[in-house]
């Protein structure tokens, strides 16, 4: 578990807004290079690695997690030197206001702002400021000054130091889906029973796109997709929106906005989890989707199995995961390779 925590500390501090995942991928390449048989970076920037196991599996196995994270892109520089931005992935404007951010490769600091609440009329207060009302202030006083530091299309990331939180928890940006990446790195560094393809995909947050291409390249028979998924176990959340809860183990996907998962695979894996004493919970609700949406309709229909850690406040600067749940995700992934390789 210390290993997972250390990996997440490193991985969640990296920046990888969709389309700008190179830094994350390069860091992961460095972590896994000594432990894999072969490694490819495809045209989409996804990293595909073959890890040799003790034996050849009965079917071609793949495990997939995405390297990209939600964020923003600089869209326009105003005459006053403020940056207007567009979201990359789904972002609620209410979690952006008041955030510190970093812009571009040089990580220029900025703050997401809107005029002070004291200057906001009662009528304006009835609606929360939409994304297009917000801007990033970098301290520049003119368009010219801002333009000498920032270009349109520069990625904008949450400026957030990850770390341990509460009792047994971990907090940071991009736990969706650096947690999945950490599980894969952890398995790659150890010993596994069957040869397995590990895919670190790109551009999941903008349409499950990296996984589309890499699935055709790997052509797996069966794929496990790892995620940090919405936890809805906060007070005052409607029961039908509760989705998953922390402390109840690894989340097994049944159906979501991109996939109706294979019942036989779910049955086989959850029985194996019960036998192995790995805690798991089904994901209720149909909201959201994962790389499985792309994968299960490619490679002649790669059967997919979805495993995630229930994560609070995903798509914000502060995601929170419960490490025993992350451990269950790691254990269930190892069990998937052992079970499905036979």
């Amino acid at each position: 578990m210390t290993d997972m925590m250390e990996l997440m500390q490193v991985l969640c501090a990296l920046d990888g807004v969709s389309g700008y995942e190179d830094g994350v991928r390069e860091a992961i390449e460095g972590m896994i290079a000594p432990h894999v048989e072969e490694m490819t970076v495809d045209a989409m920037g996804s990293l595909i690695a073959l890890k040799k196991g003790a034996r050849a599996p009965a079917r071609r196995l793949m495990v997939c997690a995405h390297t990209d994270e939600v964020g923003m892109l600089v869209f326009r520089i105003t005459d006053e030197g403020l940056l207007k931005f567009v979201p990359v992935g789904t972002l609620d404007p209410r979690v952006l206001l008041g955030q510190r951010v970093r812009i571009g490769e040089r990580r220029l600091p900025g703050v997401v702002a809107v005029k002070a609440i004291h200057l906001t009329s009662e009528a304006e207060k009835k609606i929360s400021p939409p994304i297009d009302a917000l801007y990033i202030d970098i301290g520049a006083r003119s368009k010219k000054e801002a333009a000498s530091h920032v270009r349109v299309g520069d990625p904008v990331m949450f400026d957030n130091e990850p770390g341990a939180f509460g009792e047994g928890r971990f907090r940071g940006k991009a736990i969706d889906d650096r947690l999945g990446c950490a599980v894969m790195v952890s398995l790659i560094r150890g010993n596994i029973p069957f040869d397995t393809w590990f895919a670190f995909s790109t551009c999941e947050e903008v349409g499950l796109r990296g996984a589309s291409a890499l699935t055709e390249r790997v052509r797996p028979d069966m794929t496990l997709v790892l995620e940090g998924t919405s936890a809805g176990d906060m007070p005052s959340v409607r029961p039908d929106l509760r989705a998953t809860r922390q402390g109840a183990g690894a989340v097994v996907s049944v159906a979501d906005g991109g996939t109706v998962y294979n019942r036989e695979v779910i049955e086989k894996m959850t029985c194996a989890a019960d036998a192995a004493g790995i805690p798991w919970q089904p994901r209720s609700g149909m909201g959201g989707r994962t790389d499985s949406g792309s994968i299960h309709v490619r490679a002649g229909g790669s059967l997919t199995f979805g495993v995630s850690a229930p994560t609070r406040y995903i798509h914000s600067a502060n995601n929170v995961v419960y490490m025993p749940d992350a451990k269950a995700v790691l254990d269930l992934t190892a069990l998937f390779i052992a079970t499905m390789g036979e």
């Binding site: 209410r94 939180f165 959340v237 909201g287 609070r312 406040y313």
Partner: peptide
Amino acid sequence: IKGVISALPPHLQNEGDDLKPV
């Protein structure tokens, strides 16, 4: 003691919720 203020992720919201002040 560190804390994080809860926020419902977009995946569990209905359309238009993100413009409603909490």
